[in-house]
């Protein structure tokens, strides 16, 4: 018969620590993003940031050497790809310039005010998540620099994630590939809206609301109205798909931002509209958050969003 006295002391300590761990998990989950857990995390991040800075600068030569070595093998292929990309971008730039002139003329004709600009804060990635399961980045700007919770973070490619925790000097950014992240997106080509969901290290999952819609490979997905400012490039469709009757359309998409090699980022000074946008992460009101006819209205705005410039334009906001 089992008695408490039968177990040895280390096993007793082990069981006690397991119970304590489970109690911590329960308390942290019940606080749901607030309380003691958040206070401790913010404190730890503040205290640990200087250690990370020192270690990062001390180990930079080692990391640089490794990166240079691994880049050697891909230099030739990268060169060819970049040349093709430059040619394509030059062509797109010419088209965009003529379109911008036309949009300005139409705005003046219709009496529409141009979209308001969004300020941005440049930051450097200080550290990554401590485990392979963490889809987070720590950046070297915090509330002292104007960074706030929920602000979108972008790089030169597109959306990286959003700020989920802020201390005075550093902030934590949750990447769009985190499985708990759901983003309202719009296909730039057709205006169809849907939801993009992270799946960790793999491609993201796109689910469209319109069952008659079709997507082709390479379709650019941009943010729709909601948690993020509309029109920020998020991902490109990986596989073409057409919905079967009665089912929603599901396919995969690759993020356009270089999530594995980000170094410098920009935090967009933008706060979502709580009154009009439900929390997509709760998945409670997914279809209602993105009106099906919003695509055509904001499509034009998306075309004129210079999201790779210092000041990002906010377009297509809910009137």
């Amino acid at each position: 018969m089992w008695r408490p006295g039968n177990i040895d002391r280390p096993t007793g300590v082990f069981v006690g620590l397991l119970v304590l761990s489970l109690a911590l998990v329960t308390v942290d989950l019940r606080a749901s993003g607030g309380g003691l857990g958040t206070t401790l995390r913010d404190g730890a991040q503040t205290l640990f940031a200087p250690v990370e800075r020192v270690v990062a600068s001390a180990t930079r030569p080692v990391a640089d050497a490794f990166e240079n070595l691994s880049n050697l093998f891909s230099l030739s292929a990268d060169n060819q790809r970049l040349r093709a990309q430059v040619a394509d971008l030059e062509r797109q730039l010419q088209e965009t310039e003529s379109l911008q002139v036309r949009v300005s003329e139409l705005e003046a004709l219709l009496g529409v005010d141009p979209p308001a600009g969004l300020d941005s804060i440049a930051a450097q990635v200080l550290a990554v998540g401590v485990s392979e399961f963490d889809q987070v980045r720590v950046i070297d700007k915090g509330s002292d620099d104007g960074v706030g919770i929920d602000m979108p973070v972008v790089d030169e490619g597109g959306l990286i994630g959003r700020v989920v925790a802020v201390t005075g000097s550093v902030s934590r950014v949750r990447l769009i590939t985190d499985p708990t992240i759901h983003i309202a997106v719009r296909i730039e080509r057709t205006g169809e809206t849907g939801v993009l969901t992270g799946r960790g290290s793999g491609p993201m999952v796109l689910e469209l609301f319109n069952t008659d819609a079709a997507v082709v490979e390479g379709d650019l997905l941009v943010t729709a109205d909601g948690r993020f400012p509309a029109g920020i490039p998020v991902a490109r469709v990986r596989t073409a798909a057409r919905a079967e009757v009665g089912f929603s359309l599901r396919t995969t998409a690759d993020p356009v931002a270089g999530l594995t090699s980000i170094d410098f980022v920009r935090v967009l000074v933008f706060t979502r509209d709580e009154a009009t946008v439900g929390d997509l992460e709760d998945q409670e009101r997914l279809p209602a958050t993105v009106p099906s006819d919003s695509g055509s209205q904001s499509e034009g705005d998306a075309d004129q969003l210079p999201t790779t410039t210092t000041s990002t334009t906010q377009g297509g906001s809910t009137p």
Partner: peptide
């Protein structure tokens, strides 16, 4: 006992730096 407490402490540290609920890594490391 010191080894178990070390596992728990290192786990709590990792929890504080991670995005997971506080105590999850502590449980695993212990």
């Amino acid at each position: 006992e010191a080894a178990l407490i070390l596992g728990f402490g290192a786990g709590v540290l990792q929890d504080l730096l991670a995005d997971s609920p506080l105590g999850l890594w502590a449980l695993v490391f212990t």
